[in-house]
Nucleic acid binder design. Structure first.
Lengths: 202, 202, 202, 202
DNA sequence: ACGCCCGGGACGCCCCGTTGGT
DNA sequence: ACCAACGGGGCGTCCCGGGCGT
């Protein structure tokens, strides 16, 4: 394996380790040393790849979170004929492992902790949020064309709400310390989703 | 004014100052000195009233947040004949000032930041959450008795979802830095609430 | 001894310890820990009294160096009938102990190390320099009135040169690591001083 | 251009860049990265040519400073029939550009900052100092032979003083941030130099 | 030989929540 | 109710080696 490749991998390794711990404990509660501990690397490596701890998180938002949104939440819905039903399925069978459910939505966590403190964070997180809810909006619009989604609703607002409510539900489950809480919450979200379906007949 | 009274007042003064700053910046980003700055008091006073910074927040959750939940969110709904409509009104006309809307829901903020780090926090916040969603559940149950709320829904789960979605919406608006985002979100929450009404009849 | 008094003493203790080490090794080569080591105090105490390491040195310049200039260099000359001779005596019999001679002139050291890097330093050091050379100028002017100093020389420039040359001599002795170098240097400075005397007669 | 030649050039490039920054900011305030920045080279190159940052400065003292002393300060005086007058001219018309005057004498800077901290530095700087003041002494001795310099003065001590006072003057001007201060200082040094001339007549 | 990239750690300054003595 | 002192980290920087490529 070439040197360049291991280098990229080292960088990723740091980002992955950081993501996990920050997801769990939050940004400020996570020390750089703590991040490094698991990797066997040292400060030298860290500050070789990232200008600062903040910079690391910026990279995580841009490179990891966006990716996760695509893979976990947008991907499974793409091309769905009936997005509403697919939404409900996805939320019911999300692949997120039981443990990490309890750490809340990573994006939501960052927004809540950092938005008022660091403008740069806020901007990046905002971009990710818009990517996410914008993705949902597009999917809903496709449904509208196919007749599986009501046409008298604002797809953008619906997409935004789904994301927001989803974040709220995960936050709630996080504090409850109970994954079931999340699924109970989702069942209510299902009710909301139902309202997006076209009127049954008539 | 007796000495005892000023004492109680000093304690409250600290809690109020802390609440404001912590609501804005979060727990870890708020220093004890920062809290004290505005009050003219010193560390000595602080540690006279509170064992630790954590202890202060515990008190804030127990004494201030619970109170706010009662005053702002449960009170306006008590005795409502048609809770659903009242919910929608409350969310539309919330008295929270525009600025503090952007700091997010204080309870949600604490949950997200502290739940995984400090078990004692989590427990207190959980109690507050249950007080809140439990209050909503009671109100919904009363509606069920009066026929203004469907009887085939689980009032507890509905109450919990309303609280969770509300927190999610505020978090979203917080990161957007735009109060309008909150109101857009609420309009979607209205749709959910509609699903709790009894079927029109037929 | 009252609390206030010990407090002032603690502060002074830190400053004294810092002065010694910084005089010897320079500002940047001196760590805060190193300063504290000798005192038995800890970081907490340090940052209670000084906002930063820079702030400490600022205080040292303002409070210790100015004092030393008065005591060691201006005081012995005050009221001298024949300043030139007194200058020569003072430089010959300076009370500075042999060891600290080799660390150079503290003011000169700071000027050389910090002037280009920290403007605030420069300003404070400049004030001290002017206090010093200004003091010499005053003394020379008194001599001019009494007829023991030529009247056709600029007292300010002469004062400034004495200070500058003195600093240069100490710097030179410092690098030589030999106190004798300083005294050899002073003997040449004596020649300069002689030129400030009124022309013998005629 | 042969490979060997570019190699030597690269080495020089590093030394030149380092000299400029170190002259300005001092040794400890100058980082290796900072030195390299302007050159387009990287650490690898640096440590290929120099064992350490200290080693680099050693080389600078030996190769650059000695050269500068010869070119700027000894050369213009060599073979002078009347060294005293020549001295005065040289100090009045020094070629050092106005900006770098304000950084002080490079040799003096190093002496003041590093002498007590690094013995190896001290030794090298000492050698340079002796080269310089020794050169002056030789020139004065030649004057003595020619009758343009008093014979009852110690040429070594006089040479040393000139160098020391010169350093002191530059240091003073450096902290004043004013080149004029240097020239005012030089005018006083002129007075000293006059005392080295043979008694006028008799 | 020359030069670069990656990585290593030690240490720097500073800040923080906290405890005693008064 | 306060001021003084504590000491443990926090992040970031710095100087420096080794392995790879040219």
């Amino acid at each position: 394996m070439t040197k360049r490749e291991t280098s990229i991998q080292t960088r990723m390794q740091i980002m992955a380790a950081a993501f996990t711990i920050v997801h769990k404990n939050g940004f400020r509660a996570t020390g750089v040393n703590e991040i490094l501990e698991g990797t066997g690397l040292t400060k030298g490596a860290f500050y070789h790849y990232f200008k600062s701890k903040n910079d690391l998180i910026h990279a995580i938002v841009d490179e990891i979170l966006i990716q996760m949104i695509d893979d976990l939440w947008l991907g499974p819905l793409s091309g769905a004929d009936d997005p509403i039903t697919r939404f409900q399925e996805v939320f019911r069978t999300t692949k997120v492992d039981r443990e990490s459910v309890l750490y809340g939505c990573p994006l939501n966590n960052l927004a809540v902790e950092m938005a008022p403190v660091d403008e740069e964070f806020r901007r990046r997180v905002e971009k990710a949020y818009q990517h996410w809810s914008g993705g949902y909006a597009d999917i809903l619009r496709q449904g509208q064309k196919r007749g599986t989604v009501r046409t008298d609703i604002d797809a953008d607002q619906a997409g935004a709400f789904i994301v927001a409510a989803f974040g709220g539900c995960r936050a709630r489950a996080k504090n409850a310390g109970d994954p079931e809480e999340l699924f109970r919450c989702h069942r209510q979200l299902d009710r909301y989703l139902e309202t997006l379906r076209p009127a049954p007949d008539r």
